[in-house]
């Protein structure tokens, strides 16, 4: 009897030690899989907004992801006003720009732009977006996401959260990426 209760105690003691060890190991394993600091720190892209032309899609790169920049022509601005999507565009100087992550909000393929139809088509699952990158055909659940940005004169810095970006987040125009 005495023997077995001693054995029981040893079993429990081992269980406790092993439990602490298991939790600690899992924590270390989880942290080992985290993105490295060098990956996280790699980061800001500055765009010179004077370089773009109306209705010509330019793909920039930010954190390894494509960013679409589409300067809006007057007709495109009218279209955005009519569809009540002007808030999706970023005003720099006197012009409006669509600046979005070029990754389909469905599963992350890169949609292609058709300048004639002024619309994006994602070849993977057939989703489409208009010229403010608002979704016009499912499966994508929402328009293309707007990356964190800060307007600085005629420049836009991607990766920094300016007041304009924070406002968009608050109004739910875009989601944090």
């Amino acid at each position: 009897m005495k023997d077995s209760s001693r054995r029981g105690f040893m079993g429990k003691a081992f269980g406790a030690v092993a439990g602490v060890g298991a939790v600690a190991s899992l924590y270390a394993m989880k942290k080992t899989w985290d993105p490295l600091p060098s990956v996280k720190a790699a980061g800001f892209t500055t765009l010179d907004m004077t370089a773009y032309e109306g209705n010509v899609l330019v793909t920039e790169k930010w954190r390894g992801k494509p960013v679409f920049v589409l300067k809006q022509t007057p007709e495109m601005v009218e279209f955005a006003k009519k569809k009540n999507e002007l808030n999706r565009l970023i005003k720099v100087g006197n012009d409006y720009y669509m600046i979005v992550l070029g990754l389909c909000t469905h599963l992350g393929c890169i949609p292609g732009y058709d300048a004639e139809k002024k619309s994006f088509l994602c070849a993977c699952h057939g989703g489409t977006y208009d010229s403010t990158a608002m979704v016009t055909k499912a499966p994508p659940p929402r328009g293309l996401d707007i990356p964190p940005f800060k307007v600085d004169g005629m420049k836009v810095v991607l990766g920094e959260e300016g007041p304009e970006y924070k406002k968009l987040l608050q109004e739910g125009v875009t989601l944090p990426v």
Partner: peptide, 22 residues
Amino acid sequence: LGDLHMNGLVEWIRGDYVPGQA
């Protein structure tokens, strides 16, 4: 997981914002 937007989980699986060396 769709509207759950678990981007943190995706980045954890990849070890990066996009598939890369990690």
